[in-house]
Design a protein around this nucleic acid. Structure first.
Length: 555
RNA sequence: GGUCUGUUGGUGAAGCGGUUAACACAUCACCCUCUCAAGGUGACACUCACGGGUUCAAACCCCGUACAGACUACCA
């Protein structure tokens, strides 16, 4: 009997040379300090990361870093159809854009670092086969020759009789094939998959102690699930999870909640091999409400904001995105940050118990708000340097100007920044240009002047000329404004707005109408930061030029 | 059909037997103000999906129901 089983196993896996024990020795337990967490990010090489996956990777990375553990990248290319050229490099780049650099695993399309490789599943074929062979030898796995039609038939019968669907018990035809029959079929070159001969009992219960959700009870798995696929002989996710996460000595499996239901399978697999079971944390999905008002999983197809590249292009600072991800990841993070506004993210301890488990709506406006606050706290020099990096990639014209007028640019960014409550108008690096373009002549060639309150052209001319010739004073902000008020009194505009509100009919307008005109003529916009600061930086000569340019444009 | 998960305001959520149901984002109003951006003050859940039950007392415990989602593939 044993010889027969061996013959079958050898036939099924002719290329296996090592045993499970051999691999156990090759990949010993990691020598890490007490409590260190080993996690992994295991995407398919589709070339880019989507926000939901990024969140998973981010959390796994954070959990590992907090405990001096290991975070590694494993590529799951068992579904060859989905693979894309340079897919791994694309993923690595996306991760790197958010400061996630794996400690081990793939580092480009072909190479990896670390002692637990290969880190790409298509190169681990022999390992999976050794494990599957072990199971066959122990009578816990068998070849199944059912084709798609036969499987469909089984399902139809089950549906008809309202029975549980799946390949199990008496429905598992090939389970009862004799060894001789199996050997004969294989020798006859019939295609087969390798199925688990599940020892489970559907009436018995097992418990998942989920780190995020607490205890969840399931019936034991009794499905004879596929371990090795027929055509490419690659493992299924379930089997790869067992082999890889055990051999790579992963301690914590962090994955989306769509995996909860397959826990009984995974638990059974670990039990059969008597391997130490990893801990599981099932994360909530990232959702969005689409135009029809339906709440659904964020989709990389339909939602541009789902692609991680979007944030890179948009120029949302990495730290802002990380803060936002952390607020989704751990519900106590916001509170912590309020109490520790100046502490870096690294000081916050990731907590499995605080993982949010209900599907979170992805809130772009909240992200923008975080980004805004973050940017308002940077120094002008930091803004300059970070913007330089961003524009070099995405806005060459602006990049060149920044290089050419370095000190001037820094002064611009410094307007209303070096104060207790700094301005908060930059939401991202890409938004900055729109807030400062008018400070550069090169970007002020054909300004689109906004409307002003004072409509009469002659009046506008009079005000600007009078102002430039008699009242322009840039020594300091107080005298600057005093002069403007003086001019207002002289020209019939209220210098005091409260007075104006009491008796508007006594005046042609008020001081804000006058500054509004000056503002638009200098910047083309009605909304800008502090006018005095702008004028101070522009200097008298440019002010004159711009007044002239403006007056020309309205005539 | 089966198994499992989730449901507190526009959003993220705290709370886990006694609270005015925190906090943050968004929205609105007023104040401040040369325009903005901020900042300040205030408004915003007649109530925690619904229906029962336990209890002196329930968003919190129990039981049903509804709705949403996941899995039930030789996809992950």
């Amino acid at each position: 009997m044993n010889d027969k089983l061996k013959e079958l196993a050898d036939l099924m896996f002719p290329n296996v040379t090592k045993t499970v024990e051999d691999y156990e020795k090759m990949y010993p337990e990691r020598n890490l300090e007490e409590g260190a967490v080993v996690t992994r990010f295991a995407p398919s090489p589709t070339g880019f990361v989507h926000m939901g996956s990024l969140l998973t990777a981010f959390e796994a990375h954070k959990a590992a870093k907090d405990t001096n553990g290991v975070f590694y990248l494993r590529i799951e290319d068992t579904d060859q159809k989905r693979s894309v050229e340079n897919g791994i490099v694309g993923i690595l780049n996306d991760l790197k854009n958010f400061d996630i650099v794996p400690d081990e695993g793939m580092i480009d399309e072909e190479n990896s670092i670390g002692n637990y490789g290969p880190y790409i599943q298509s190169e681990r074929m022999e390992i999976y086969h050794a494990f599957a062979k072990d199971l066959v030898l122990r009578g816990l796995a068998y070849p199944c020759f059912c084709n798609a039609e036969e499987l469909d038939e089984i399902r139809e019968i089950q549906e008809l009789n309202k029975e549980r669907i799946g390949y199990y018990g008496s429905f598992a035809k090939c389970r009862s094939l004799s060894i001789d029959e199996a050997i004969a079929k294989i020798k006859n070159k019939e295609d087969f998959v390798v199925r688990l001969k599940s020892p489970g009992n559907f009436n018995k219960k097992i418990i998942l102690n989920d780190l995020a959700r607490g205890d969840i009870e399931f019936p034991e798995n009794d499905l004879d699930i596929v371990l090795i696929k027929s055509t490419d002989k690659l493992p299924t996710y379930h089997f790869a999870h067992l082999v890889d996460d055990h051999l790579m000595r992963t301690t914590h499996i962090m994955r989306g909640e769509e995996w909860i239901a397959s826990f009984p399978i995974h638990d059974q697999l670990f039990s059969i091999f008597n391997f130490k079971k990893p801990k599981y944390a099932h994360l909530g999905l990232v959702m969005k409400v689409d135009d029809t008002g339906v709440r659904r999983k964020l989709s990389k197809r339909k939602d541009p904001e789902a692609s991680v590249e979007f944030y890179h292009k948009e120029g949302i600072p990495i730290d802002a995105v990380k803060s936002y991800l952390m607020t989704i990841a751990n519900s106590n993070f916001e509170e912590w940050q309020d109490k520790n506004p100046d502490s870096p993210l690294a000081d916050f301890k990731y907590d499995f118990k605080k993982i949010s488990i209900s599907g979170t709506l992805f809130d772009v406006s909240k992200l923008f708000n975080i980004s805004k606050n973050y940017l308002s706290k940077r120094t002008a020099k930091e803004i300059y340097e970070e913007l330089l990096i961003w524009t070099e990639e995405f806005d060459q014209e602006f990049y060149n100007l920044l290089l050419k007028y370095k000190d001037y640019a820094i002064s611009i960014f410094n307007i209303e920044r070096n104060i207790e409550k700094p301005r908060k108008d930059y939401t991202s690096y890409s938004s900055i240009r729109n807030f400062v373009f008018y400070m550069f002549d090169e970007l002020f060639m054909n300004p689109n002047y906004e409307e002003v309150k004072i409509k009469d052209k002659k009046e506008r001319e009079l005000i600007l000329n009078t102002y430039y010739n008699e009242y322009l004073d840039l020594t300091d902000k107080d005298s600057w404004f005093l002069k403007i008020k003086e001019m207002c009194d002289k020209l019939g505009y209220a210098s005091n707005i409260k007075e104006y509100k009491k008796n508007p009919e006594n005046y042609k307008g008020n001081v804000s109408d006058v500054t509004g005109l000056i503002r638009v003529s200098l910047t083309s916009k009605t909304n800008t930061p502090d006018l005095f600061n702008i004028m101070e930086l522009l200097g008298k000569e440019k002010i004159k030029e711009r007044f002239t340019k403006y007056l020309k444009s309205i005539n």
